[in-house]
Write a protein that binds this DNA or RNA. Structure first.
Length: 487
DNA sequence: TTTTGAGTTGTTCGA
DNA sequence: GTCGAACAACTCAAA
């Protein structure tokens, strides 16, 4: 006698913690089966235990926990449930699929080699078990296969790369969030707290909570508010003392919003307001950089490990634990650098302009290997992305694709005066300097003892002396780069 | 195959 | 104070 109960359909959530424009969820819901939604916290698959797939950093773990709560809540609102499991994803999902006699498993692809490899394992296990699987398009505007040179290589210069992506036209149309979901009587899962994603003793996440609301709803709100305030983005985006950036990066990182959604929202805003077309193009090109870095990672899975330009393998990096520590804690004596590093520690992000300044300082003034900086960012950024983080560090160091020329050494005083002219950004994150006049805020050592005393600043006391003289650091960097170029 | 033009984000120096 | 040149040479993409 035939069983009329529809068989369940599994949706495997990954870096796509949203309901709208979610191809896997959309298809699964449309297929009419009863849904089982699952997220697997996977630090156990062999493919994810290599240098090419590092465990999440502390800040990212915190974000993940909040984002999963938000996703679970919005699934429940629509009648479904999020099941949490921990362990090797392929084995766990294949086993679940057999247990519940699933008719199919759906997921969105992650175009990162180790994640693809895990998905390949699952696909194989499901095929053996005779269960359908559907791999849906991932969170890229274009697939790496679509953007190749005539010789079949990936593009390594941004401008031609982005022209090619733009030439492909609009990405696939957006998919609406399913209005209601029919959930299967699902098996049980883990309690989120048992994963210990959030810090307890000490609880250092206070600054993250103050700064962010993870989840799809907040991501959409941020996007709308940002596009409303977009005029002037092209200049404003470089000003850490102004709130001109989109603040979408961690939402994109965890797939709470898709790049396609950002793309269409921006294009719609441009159509409505032709006057801001230039600002829109500039903003979309930032999405292009995310895309570029991910394509680069696709072609170079060891991007976080290995210099893209092999000539840098001989670079004379210095091991200096004390200097690295001073940089990490925001105690270099350069206010703009220290402000950035403290913003990062407190909020899990750093303004883009300041990221370049602190990165240049670590790599060029201190001659510390870019991988040390990349790893620190990986641990402390809520938007730490497997593509963007190493690609941009390599860009600053000069070892990357389309890299900055060696002689581009950011002057931390000049950068501060140019992009934080009144010193508001420094005052916010380095409060011990808050009473200094703007004239000295980016170079407190040039103030007289009287002026320092009046502002309550003691150099070498409550604020450090510069750990290296700018001119000395610059000359030393240029000399080191000159040596590398001879190879 | 060869050639050509171009390449995210800067700083310093001297006229 | 402002402005242009120098800071190198190399790789990439496309014609």
């Amino acid at each position: 006698m035939p069983n009329n109960t529809p068989r369940p359909v599994i949706v495997w959530f990954r870096d796509d913690l949203r309901l709208s424009d979610h191809p896997a969820l959309h298809q699964a819901a449309a297929s009419g089966g009863l849904l089982i939604c699952i997220y697997v916290f996977d630090e156990d698959s062999a493919q994810l235990r290599s240098p090419q797939a590092r465990p999440l950093g502390g800040a990212s773990r915190w974000w993940l926990a909040q984002s999963l709560r938000a996703l679970a809540a919005s699934l429940e609102k629509r009648g479904a449930r999020l099941i949490l499991r921990r362990g090797p994803a392929a084995a766990i999902i294949a086993e679940l699929a057999r247990q519940v006699d699933a008719s199919a498993v759906h997921w969105n692809e992650i175009e990162i080699a180790p994640h693809r490899a895990v998905a390949d394992d699952l696909a194989e296990a499901l095929s053996v078990a005779g269960i359908d699987h559907h791999r849906h398009r991932g969170d890229l505007l274009a697939s790496p296969a679509e953007v190749r040179t005539k010789e079949g290589r990936g593009l390594r210069v941004f401008t031609p790369f982005w022209r090619r992506v733009l030439g492909l036209g609009d990405p696939p149309k957006l998919l609406p969030a399913p209005k209601t979901l029919s959930a299967a009587q699902g098996p049980s899962g883990d309690q989120l707290d048992s994963w210990m994603l959030e810090p307890t003793e000490p609880d250092w996440a206070g600054g993250l909570r103050e700064s962010w609301t993870p989840g799809e709803g907040a991501a959409q709100d941020n996007l709308t508010a940002f596009l409303d305030a977009l005029p002037g983005y092209t200049e404003g985006r470089d000003r850490p003392d102004c709130a001109a950036t989109s603040r979408l990066s961690p939402h994109l990182r965890f797939g709470e919003i898709s790049p396609r959604q950002v793309w269409y929202a921006a294009r719609f805003a441009a159509a409505e307001r032709p006057a801001i077309a230039g600002d829109i193009d500039k903003f979309l090109s930032e999405l292009g950089w995310r895309e570029f870095c991910r394509h680069l990672l696709h072609d170079h899975p060891d991007l976080a490990e290995r210099n893209l330009q092999a000539s840098f393998d001989a670079f004379p990096w210095i091991t200096d634990a004390a200097a690295l520590h001073a940089w990490q804690r925001g105690c270099t004596g350069y206010p703009i650098v220290d402000a950035g590093m403290r913003e990062l520690w407190r909020t899990g992000v750093m303004h883009n302009r300041v990221r370049m300044v602190v990165a240049s300082f670590l790599v060029k003034h201190l001659l510390i290997d870019w991988r040390c900086g990349e790893q620190w960012f990986w641990d402390t950024l809520v938007d730490a992305d497997a593509g963007s983080n190493p690609a941009n560090w390599q860009w600053v160091a000069g070892s990357g694709a389309d890299a900055a020329p060696y002689f581009r050494v950011f002057n931390p005083i000049l950068q501060g005066e140019k992009f934080d002219p009144a010193g508001d950004y420094v005052r916010r994150w380095v409060p011990e300097l808050a009473s200094l006049p703007a004239k000295f805020i980016h170079q407190p050592w040039t103030a007289t003892p009287f002026e320092l005393a009046a502002a309550g600043v003691t150099l070498g006391g409550n604020y450090p002396e510069p750990i290296i003289d700018h001119r000395v650091g610059r000359e030393r960097a240029l000399a080191a780069y000159a040596k590398t170029r001879q190879h």
